[in-house]
Amino acid sequence: MDDHPRPGKKDKVRARGAEVLRELKEAGLVVHPDVTVLASVSSGLPTDQDHNYRAYVDHFTRTVLNHASKAEVYRAERPGYDLGFLVFDESTAYFETLGAFGPPGMGRPHCWFADSAFVDVMVRSSSDCFVWLTPYKRMHVSGNGQIPLPTMTVIDVALLAEEEHLVFDPSRMVSTEE
């Protein structure tokens, strides 16, 4: 799962990566069959179009609810076991700006695991738990500092109903890569 908008259902980053790999093969790059080559490329889009909070929420919702529609089948395959969803989240970190009321770069860090937009989807998923991996999220602050973010979050869905969740304004969400 990621935060790249897909106008026309095409991810520009993945398309550019495939193009680079084709160019490398055409140039004569020989790769052993057991090796996977990944191209780290830019989409060429401005950050707000490349990494987008609304696309992040939409992609998470679509992916989780697609799997949730198969929850009965999953449970039938393993009766007596809890159902857990593993989320491999390749998105960037976000923060909510103060908008016109505050200086640029000031705001509140996005806590995806407590965001009401994501929590609502998790509750609707029919899953018992989520293991949410976020290996690429980085939140840098001025002075070369960094806010530590979890790389793995284990969420007991039953406990989500007991807590109050954070509401973020999508129009003020900004990628930390901006």
Rank of each mutant, 00 (worst) to 15 (best):
Q49Y: 09
H51Q: 12
A55I: 09
Y56A: 04
V57S: 01
D58M: 11
D58T: 11
H59Q: 09
R62H: 12
R62W: 10
T63N: 12
N66Q: 15
N66R: 12
H67L: 14
H67Y: 13
A68P: 00
A68M: 06
A71K: 00
Y74N: 03
A76E: 09
E77Y: 09
P79G: 02
P79S: 02
D82N: 06
F85Y: 15
L86T: 08
L86F: 14
V87R: 10
D89L: 10
D89E: 06
E90Q: 13
S91L: 03
A93D: 02
A93G: 10
G99E: 05
G99I: 10
G105V: 05
M106P: 10
M106G: 11
H110I: 00
H110P: 07
C111A: 10
C111K: 13
W112S: 13
A114N: 09
A114D: 10
A114G: 00
S116R: 09
A117P: 08
M122Y: 02
S125I: 01
S125M: 05
F130H: 06
F130C: 03
P135R: 07
K137T: 05
R138Q: 06
R138W: 06
M139W: 06
S142A: 13
S142G: 12
G145Q: 07
I147S: 05
L149P: 00
T151D: 13
I155W: 04
V157G: 01
V157C: 04
V157K: 01
